[in-house]
């Protein structure tokens, strides 16, 4: 139970970083922390105490393997989610650089031409 609580604390820390910091790069870091907290939770969902990696190698007993291995599905999901996170991260960093080029600042409170 305590590990789930820790991932939630990590998630909330990311959210705090996103909301409280003004620097756009720090906001990006906050989003990435939130993303990784969710990935960690997904991995924990499939975890089994004393389990083995879900890879069948030559010479392993299949019946014993299915009772021992951890759930492989969340691991596949996490890999997909990491790839998506990478794409979003690249886009966010590119946008930060472009924003700096235009506004000459990373401070979000000064980047506000749109209002109303």
């Amino acid at each position: 139970m305590i590990v789930y609580l820790l991932t939630f604390i990590l998630f909330v820390m990311g959210l705090y970083c996103l909301v409280a910091k003004k620097n756009v790069v720090k906001k990006v870091i906050g989003i990435v922390i939130m993303d990784y907290a969710v990935n960690l939770l997904l991995i924990l969902v499939g975890y089994r105490r004393g389990g083995v990696a879900p890879i069948l190698l030559k010479g392993m007993d299949r019946a014993k393997f299915t009772t021992q291995s951890v759930d492989p599905l969340p691991q596949a999901l996490v890999l997909t989610s990491i790839v998506i996170g990478l794409g979003v991260l690249a886009l966010m960093v590119a946008l930060c650089i472009r924003l700096y080029e235009k506004y000459k600042t990373f401070d979000m409170s000064e980047i506000r031409r749109l209002r109303g």
């Binding site: 960093v93 590119a94 650089i97 700096y100 080029e101 000459k104």
Partner: peptide
């Protein structure tokens, strides 16, 4: 590559 080329512009700025 893209970020490195963009990054140049930031250094100039």
């Amino acid at each position: 590559i893209a970020l490195a080329i963009f990054g140049r512009a930031v250094y100039r700025a």
